[in-house]
Design a protein around this nucleic acid. Structure first.
Lengths: 196, 196
DNA sequence: AGCGAGAGTCTAGCAGTGCTAGCCATCCTG
DNA sequence: CAGGATGGCTAGCACTGCTAGACTCTCGCT
């Protein structure tokens, strides 16, 4: 009875350990460095243990991605808290989002670039994921116009941010001018200075 | 003398063969299917021949990307030719761009997603690449406002399109509503119906 | 207390990857 | 027609994700 519980608890602990190790390793040296052997060594278990917890490397990345969403949500939420006015809030959330993408590239890739079999734009999407989107949505809502679908508008704004992050990160856009591009995006989504 | 020329010509032919085979294979079965062995078999040479032409697989993908830019440029140019009015032109180029990304996913990834060591936002960028950007720039130019940097605005618009394509392609955004998201993006960059 | 059963972990290996060293044949030059 | 350089091939390295099968250690029951 209690032994069973302890076992499950230890198992859950180890699963968390795997996800944490994968995330740390990816952030330190990139996802290419996260091999199953390396990861196994990191957690001080043998390779097959990973497969008793996850279906494969992709599933581990998905787990990292879900946890990354929680961090992103927290940062987006914190950014809008201190911002007054519709435009300022949109700018704040945009800055927080792109900062996250630049500061945590490996985490960001797991969440939004790499192919991981996570349901996204459906009700079955993991809760942390929906919450992150919800934070964006709350910031976009005040600048939506008559007749515009709020969810679709948020998705479009999100795409803009995502494009900025990925193109910059892959060297297609210069880092130095990022702030000005972000300002242009904000200006197009929240035209004049909104209500204070 | 002439023998030298024939040799160089044959070599160039084979190099084109490699790039074409890589592109076709990638478009047919995705980049994961493009292994050096498979590619070598496709061109009916042994593996090491690939490395006498290119530094590695990345360089082959880069070559495919450059050629892809030529195709993209052509499609963007064709799309704007038949469109009258600033907004219609922007919408046309946006549609052409995203259509390209959806119809040629492997080509698109080589160009804008995968890490290939190509200089991008510098004067040393390959000509086809600069031309493709130039086509976008021509479409954005009429909707730029006073004091806005045209190049930066084009980059921002590009990021929006790129985000739409990649998020949709990786299953983060539903395909069905793509047209409406694109319309929202266009509406934000070219607010009212422009001059006819 | 001691034994059978089963859960859990490890070693070893498979099929595949990108890439390269070194041999061999082929063709051009003197 | 011999000699040499060019160029392609075979074979192999170190690595990847993933898995089969043996092994050990713990638990529950008589």
């Amino acid at each position: 009875m209690s032994i069973q519980k302890r076992r499950e608890r230890e198992r859950a602990d180890r699963e968390r350990l795997i996800v944490t190790a994968a995330r740390d390793l990816a952030e330190a040296e990139g996802w290419d460095a996260v091999t199953t052997r390396r990861l196994a060594a990191e957690i001080e278990y043998s390779q097959p243990v990973l497969y008793s917890h996850f279906k494969g490397k992709g599933a581990i990345m998905a787990a990292v991605a879900v946890r990354g969403c929680e961090e992103l949500t927290a940062e987006l939420r914190a950014s809008t808290a201190a911002a007054g006015g519709a435009r300022a809030r949109l700018a704040a959330v945009g800055r927080a989002y792109t900062d996250f993408g630049r500061r945590r590239p490996a985490l960001y890739d797991a969440m939004f670039t790499h192919l991981v079999d996570l349901p996204f734009a459906t009700p079955e999407a993991p809760a942390p994921l929906q919450e992150a989107f919800g934070e964006l949505l709350r910031a976009v809502e005040p600048v939506a116009r008559e007749g515009e679908d709020l969810a679709l508008l948020t998705e479009t704004f999100w795409a803009g941010l995502h494009g900025l992050v990925t193109l910059m990160r892959s060297g297609r856009l210069p880092e130095e001018t990022h702030t000005r591009r972000l300002a242009l995006l904000i200006a197009r989504f929240a035209p004049q200075d909104g209500t204070p």
